[in-house]
Structure formats: structure tokens, C-alpha cells
Amino acid sequence: MTLDHLVYAVPDLEAAVADFAERTGVTPVKGGSHPGGTANYLVGFGPTAYLEIIGPDPDSDERPRAFGLADLTEPRLTAWAIHPEDLDETVRQARQAGYDPGEVAPLSRRKPDGTLLEWRLTRRDDPAAVRPVPFLIDWGQTQHPAASGLPELALVSFTATHPDPEALRKDLAAVGAELEVEPGQEVGLQAVLDTPQGQVRLA
């Protein structure tokens, strides 16, 4: 199963992007605005995967609910996405295995140049702050964001902690995902990036 992107949720988008650029030596590129009051900046991990820094849209009055942004007080690596070959079939198989990835829904955003990007993804009504099981995404005919000449960093490692590692591994297997899971008191995601400023950890 192919990693599509990591989601780094932040309460103040412009401040978080400036901090990320200072910590890593790489300045994220503005991705655009979503319906629902969010906007994002992107950094590539190569031609098929990227880091999404997402926060409240500075140009919107809406209070976003996605990724726990309504209550977020500090940046957090909150979710990740994988790109199955057949999204609908993967959803069917996951449910058969005892895990419901959620309903498949269309979503879109406009890039700063006005280009409309459209995709489908699975959405769960899940209030959890951190979601260690990836959501599924299918870009259809839209060019993958990582293929648009993003500034790049290397993803050295991506891991999770969970109070019940075996239960999490079962849910990961249901959607065809693999992730190193360590026991921990709280659910968490951690990524280590190789940057011009040395290794940087996001959690």
C-alpha cells in the first residue's frame, strides 16, 4: 500500500509554516483552500508522497472542525493517508475484516493559480485527536500534488505508539497498511525528517 501523505495539523497556519521553514531550512509551498475553512501548505517526500501542513484558512471566517482544528492549541501529527489501487474494493475488504474506514466522499480545493483539484477519500465521524489508521484517498484524474514540483525532504521514519499495539495492527492490516507500532500510554504518530538543518521530529 502506497503512502500518500502525512497530515500535520496546526492552530495557526502562517506561524506554523514559518516555524517549519526555520527548523528545516525548507519553505513549504502554499497548496490552497478547502471548503470548510481550512488551507494547507505542502512539502514533498518524492513524486508520490508529501507532508500536508493544514490549519484554519486565514482568508475564511469558518471555524474548521477537520483534524481536531477547532480545539487544537499546538501543532500535531494527526493523521495519514494511503493510496490503494482500488479505493472502493479496499473499503469493502476492510469492512469484511472488521474495520470500517468510513464513507467515501468527494473533496476538492483550488490551488493559488486557480486550478481545481478533486479527489475521493474515506471519512469517519471520529473525534479522536490522532488517527493512527490511515484514511484512503484516490486522486482520480487529478495530478498528484507531490508531482507538481514541491520542495522536498526525506522521510526517515514514520511510526506510531498505541496502548494496544496488536489491536492497531489488526486495523492497519484490514486496510492493507503497514506501520511500526510501539506500546505507549497514548495514541501518537511520529515522523522523522532529514532536512538541511539535520533531522527534525514531528509528533
Results as ranks from 00 to 15, higher is better:
residue 183 P to I: 00
residue 167 A to P: 00
residue 176 G to H: 05
residue 156 V to T: 15
residue 169 R to N: 12
residue 180 E to A: 13
residue 178 E to K: 09
residue 188 G to Y: 07
residue 180 E to N: 01
residue 184 G to T: 02
residue 162 H to K: 10
residue 180 E to S: 11
residue 176 G to I: 01
residue 186 E to D: 15
residue 182 E to T: 10
residue 187 V to W: 01
residue 187 V to D: 00
residue 188 G to T: 08
residue 188 G to L: 03
residue 155 L to F: 13
residue 165 P to Q: 03
residue 170 K to E: 15
residue 165 P to K: 07
residue 159 T to W: 06
residue 152 E to F: 02
residue 184 G to L: 02
residue 164 D to T: 12
residue 182 E to C: 01
residue 173 A to W: 11
residue 156 V to N: 04
residue 174 A to T: 11
residue 173 A to K: 12
residue 187 V to A: 00
residue 169 R to E: 15
residue 189 L to Y: 13
residue 160 A to R: 09
residue 175 V to Q: 05
residue 179 L to G: 03
residue 185 Q to K: 08
residue 175 V to N: 03
residue 170 K to G: 04
residue 189 L to F: 12
residue 189 L to D: 05
residue 153 L to K: 08
residue 183 P to N: 00
residue 167 A to L: 12
residue 169 R to L: 13
residue 166 E to L: 14
residue 189 L to K: 09
residue 157 S to R: 14
residue 162 H to W: 12
residue 189 L to G: 02
residue 154 A to T: 15
residue 154 A to P: 00
residue 167 A to E: 14
residue 160 A to L: 11
residue 176 G to L: 08
residue 152 E to M: 06
residue 160 A to H: 10
residue 187 V to R: 08
residue 166 E to N: 11
residue 186 E to Q: 15
residue 182 E to I: 00
residue 169 R to F: 02
residue 167 A to Q: 14
residue 176 G to Y: 06
residue 181 V to S: 02
residue 160 A to Q: 11
residue 175 V to L: 07
residue 165 P to H: 04
residue 175 V to A: 05
residue 167 A to T: 13
residue 190 Q to C: 03
residue 176 G to S: 04
residue 185 Q to C: 01
residue 161 T to V: 08
residue 162 H to A: 07
residue 187 V to M: 03
residue 160 A to W: 13
